Computed example of a mutant assay.
Amino acid sequence: MGYGICLETWGDYALFSRPEMKVERVSYDVITPSAARGIIDSIYWKPAIVWRIDKVHVCNPVEFTNIRRNEVSSKISARSVDSVMNGAAKPLYINTNEDRQQRASMILKNVRYIIEAHFELTDKAGETDTIEKHYNIALRRMRKGQCYHQPCFGCREFPANFRLLEGDVPESGLIGEKDLGYMLYDMDFTDPENIKPMFFRAVMRNGIIDLSACEVVR
Results as ranks from 00 to 15, higher is better:
1 M>C: 11
2 G>A: 12
4 G>N: 13
5 I>C: 06
8 E>Q: 10
9 T>G: 09
12 D>S: 14
13 Y>F: 04
20 E>Q: 04
29 D>Q: 13
31 I>T: 02
36 A>V: 00
36 A>G: 10
41 D>T: 05
44 Y>T: 03
44 Y>M: 07
51 W>D: 02
52 R>S: 08
55 K>S: 02
57 H>E: 01
64 F>C: 12
65 T>I: 06
65 T>W: 12
66 N>C: 06
69 R>V: 10
70 N>W: 03
71 E>G: 14
78 A>G: 11
79 R>V: 02
81 V>K: 15
81 V>F: 05
82 D>R: 12
84 V>I: 07
88 A>I: 07
95 N>C: 04
97 N>Q: 11
98 E>P: 10
98 E>D: 13
101 Q>V: 13
108 L>P: 00
112 R>C: 09
117 A>E: 00
118 H>A: 08
120 E>V: 03
122 T>C: 15
124 K>V: 14
126 G>V: 04
139 L>E: 13
140 R>W: 15
142 M>I: 01
142 M>E: 07
142 M>A: 10
144 K>F: 13
145 G>I: 15
145 G>W: 10
146 Q>A: 14
148 Y>T: 13
149 H>G: 15
152 C>Y: 05
155 C>S: 08
157 E>W: 07
159 P>M: 03
160 A>W: 06
160 A>M: 06
164 L>D: 14
170 P>Q: 03
177 E>A: 12
180 L>F: 04
188 D>V: 02
190 T>G: 05
192 P>C: 06
195 I>W: 09
196 K>L: 05
198 M>T: 01
198 M>L: 07
202 A>N: 00
206 N>S: 13
207 G>N: 07
214 C>P: 01
215 E>A: 06
